[in-house]
């Protein structure tokens, strides 16, 4: 009886097997890469708005607190897009002839709200709550980035579930003193502020204060103080 398979058949089989596995892996990696790419997540995509509102001007230059406009951020799930009344507090006097702000004045006169195009849009089955993050010492910066540098608002982070879980598994790496929650800078850059110094002075022992890892030490201490735990149950975010 002659040989059924040629000498090279073994090689072929191995090549097909390995090649197949590689192909499948590659396919899945490509899929995952696509889902996490800005094309799908909209990360750093600037969205056109009716009124080209600049956080860089209002927060960075003028220094208005986040809560002047986003009033419900400490007490409810949503930060709240301000009513036209808030814009008009200043803009009935300032730039009140400006073409750029014509839609604001029109909204004020007609009572019809301005239509903003949503920048951060979580799926409807995610029940994100701003207030609890604020009260647990998670700064605006952690999700919204350096808003004071943004001419037009863009989504600074991918907002994927994977990204949420990164922090929910290890909130200690993201906590900051409550007094600095509304400062849109990384905590490492705020070590010179009075708020940071005060937090260090109240929370850390004398010998730890000059440590080069003082930010990490402070974060560890804050995590205990604010009762931060891993929050990875499905029902933390889903109902």
């Amino acid at each position: 009886m002659p040989q059924l398979f040629s000498r090279s058949a073994d090689m072929m089989l191995q090549a097909v097997l390995i090649g197949g596995i590689l192909l499948v892996t590659l396919l899945f990696s490509a899929l995952f890469a696509v889902v996490r790419s800005p094309d799908i997540t909209n990360q750093n995509v600037t969205i056109e708005q009716t009124v080209p509102f600049s956080h860089q001007h209002h927060v960075g230059d003028i220094g208005i607190d986040c809560r002047y406009c986003h009033q419900s951020v400490e007490t409810s799930a949503i930060a709240g897009v301000p009513p036209t009344q808030v814009c008009m507090n200043c803009h009935r006097e300032l730039w009140n002839q400006s073409e750029m702000l014509a839609p604001v004045r029109e909204s004020w006169e007609t009572g019809q709200p301005l239509v903003w195009n949503r920048v951060h849009d979580l799926p409807d089955y995610v029940y994100f709550n701003h207030s609890i993050h604020i009260h647990k010492g998670i700064g605006c910066y952690e999700c919204h980035g350096e808003v004071d540098q943004m001419r037009l608002t863009r989504q600074a982070e991918p907002l994927t579930m994977h990204w949420c879980l990164d922090c929910h598994r290890n909130p200690e790496a993201h906590v900051r003193p409550r007094s600095l929650v509304f400062t849109p800078k990384p905590l490492e850059d705020l070590a010179d502020t009075t708020e940071f110094q005060e937090a260090v002075a109240t929370l850390l022992a004398q010998d730890a204060r000059d440590d080069s890892g003082v930010v990490e030490l402070l974060r560890q201490r804050l995590a205990t103080d604010y009762h931060l735990d891993e929050r990875t149950d499905c029902y933390t975010c889903h109902r």
Partner: peptide
């Protein structure tokens, strides 16, 4: 500090940023 400082300034002097910009 949230609501009044833009016009009234942190010390209440009335030299807040919004005022310095024309309010």
């Amino acid at each position: 500090d949230v609501s009044c400082v833009p016009c009234h300034d942190a010390t209440g002097s009335g030299n807040g940023m919004a005022a310095r910009r024309g309010f």
